[in-house]
Design a protein around this nucleic acid. Structure first.
Lengths: 334, 334
DNA sequence: GTGAAAGCGCTAACAC
DNA sequence: GTGTTAGCGCTTTCAC
């Protein structure tokens, strides 16, 4: 591969001049600039990024570390981040922590090693994810979706508690007597906040909180499936007549389990899921969900990251509002 | 941030010795090695990747360039690639070309600039995507899903023609008289191969090929929706009684359009989609699809990439076999 | 406006 | 085993 020296030789100028033409830092005489451009084209020269990064001590790359690249929620957020990054002149290095704190730590090390210009992260664990290596370096970090505790970073969150409260209240209004909550692991703030919102709604309706109706699973499809199997395995009187499922992938699993057991939705069990999906109107019945502003979450994160170095004061926190989208799976009033 | 020199000073050794400890290239006396490790820990030293890449002239990074990060097909492929990459000791830099040859070219330049160790790409265009910058550099490239013409690269493809033929034949066997094909743009080999398979099946059944029953849209949801609207807008006798939809996202749109027009599936219109989805059993009726071995595609690509430098002979091509998964949307025989 | 020269942090060749 | 040294490709003073 050609180097800047090769280009300089061919264009009969110094390497410094080639650099100046490429970066537009100083004026170069038109003729020489033209010679340089020709030489670049002829040699198909492409600057070697590591050399440039070494010299400049920074890169125009952001690392985006998401917990689950297969979850459409995150890919939509990523799209928002990407579009924002492009606008601000950054490239995006996308990493998948796979809900694993260890893998996540590895990618954080990579981000540190690359001296990336910024990091957007949906932490694998609210308490255990360690952002310190980034913060020590002074790399701006924006947390999305999940709240990291003990680290002072900007964040873009959704009012999960509100969304969960609305979902649960809606089920109660529609006549549900025993609403179960299938939520995620304790290590995720989203799981806890959605559970809290569920409790809020019960309390507001004067309902007793029944521990046996709350199940924690991982946020994956199999978790939703297993939860429903467990909830419907005991004596029938103990079964729930409504489900608030706190995550999109678990909702798929939950619906599959209900279907397999010939339980009618919403007749036997009413269902509200979290996060909308393109196919939510294709299921029978159509799925009621708490929709999240996924793309905006990403967009907003990019804006915070781009302005992080200039920002004064403490961490900035943006909380976006989810929206209950009522379809058929949650039944009807009365 | 601490440098290798800082570590060396603190450990009272030379920078070379620190490097040796970190990379395990040569034996270092136990005591000195221990001192180095302590210094590394104390300073929280993290090697600066660009400096290392500059010196070594290569990186342990693969670029994975996918056409649409929001398409679950690709994210599943990516998971396969990632798992393979990890096994072979590579990190994955994920890029989203957004079905745009221009953005794709930008990421190819990035890959060249970074001198990545390999590239896995699902090209944005069979003919227009330009892999030459990579090949000139000698970077191993593996194409997945879509076939790039005019470039000698390894590839992992699916037998789209076979899958499409099976899908269409199945619809015909189930009594469809007018099978429409909603496929993708001409620039994508997958779109063309699936159309070819559709034609194969018609021919094998002795059916006349009717141009008006073939629609090309982009591979996105709105495309499927628009196609169905178009197909059902003319005089009823011209409407199809079956649809072969050549892509997962378009299938969602197509089903939505059918639903909106109160067309019964499979009564009025039988449907087979391409690529399976977790929610395919939740729709009413359950969706018949041609399932692709997504994860294996990625896995296989990683294996080809890891062994590319050692491989002799011409380009290697692996063709995986899709599988028709019959559910309800395609009707019943007779 | 331009070139010479230094140096970013790291590793590998070479001495000892 | 270990330290010294050179140099990867680039940008940025500093002279002129």
């Amino acid at each position: 591969m050609a180097t800047i020296t090769d280009v300089a030789r061919l264009a009969r100028v110094s390497p410094a001049t080639v650099s100046r033409v490429l970066n537009g830092t100083t004026d170069v005489s038109p003729e020489r600039a033209e010679r340089v451009r020709q030489a670049v084209a002829e040699l198909q020269y492409q600057p070697f990024s590591p050399a440039r990064a070494l010299r400049r001590q920074l890169t125009d790359v952001w690392a985006v570390i998401v917990a689950d690249i297969e979850n459409p929620f995150f890919t939509s957020v990523v799209r928002g981040i990407e579009d924002g990054a492009r606008e601000f002149g950054y490239r995006v290095l996308l990493c998948n922590s796979d809900e694993d704190v260890g893998k996540e730590a590895g990618y954080i090390d990579v981000a540190v090693g690359e001296r990336v210009g910024g990091v957007v992260i949906s932490v694998a664990s609210t308490r255990q994810s360690d952002l310190a290596p980034l913060l020590r370096l002074g790399v701006p970090v924006v947390a999305v979706d999940r709240r990291p505790v003990g680290h002072l970073v900007d964040s873009v969150l959704v009012d999960n508690r509100l969304g969960a409260r609305q979902a649960t209240a809606h089920l109660i209004e529609n006549g549900a007597r025993r609403v179960a909550c299938i939520t995620g692991p304790k290590r995720l703030s989203t799981a806890n906040e959605r559970l809290a919102g569920y409790k809020d709604a019960l309390a507001a309706a004067g309902r007793r909180f029944d521990e046996s109706l709350v199940l924690r699973e991982d946020f994956r499809q199999a978790g939703g499936y297993d939860a429903v199997r467990a909830l419907t395995s005991g004596r029938p009187r103990a079964h729930p007549d409504a489900l608030f499922v706190a995550n999109n992938q678990m909702t798929v699993g939950a619906l599959q389990a209900l279907q397999q057991q010939d339980l009618d939705v919403p007749g036997d069990v009413k269902v509200v899921g979290f996060d909308d999906a393109p196919w939510a109107t294709l299921t029978r019945p159509q799925l009621t969900v708490v929709a999240q502003p996924t793309y905006d979450i990403g967009r907003t994160a990019a804006e915070l990251l781009a302005t992080a170095r200039a920002a004064k004061g403490g961490p900035r926190e943006v909380v976006l509002v989810p929206k209950l989208v009522v379809r058929e799976s949650s039944g009807r009033p009365g």
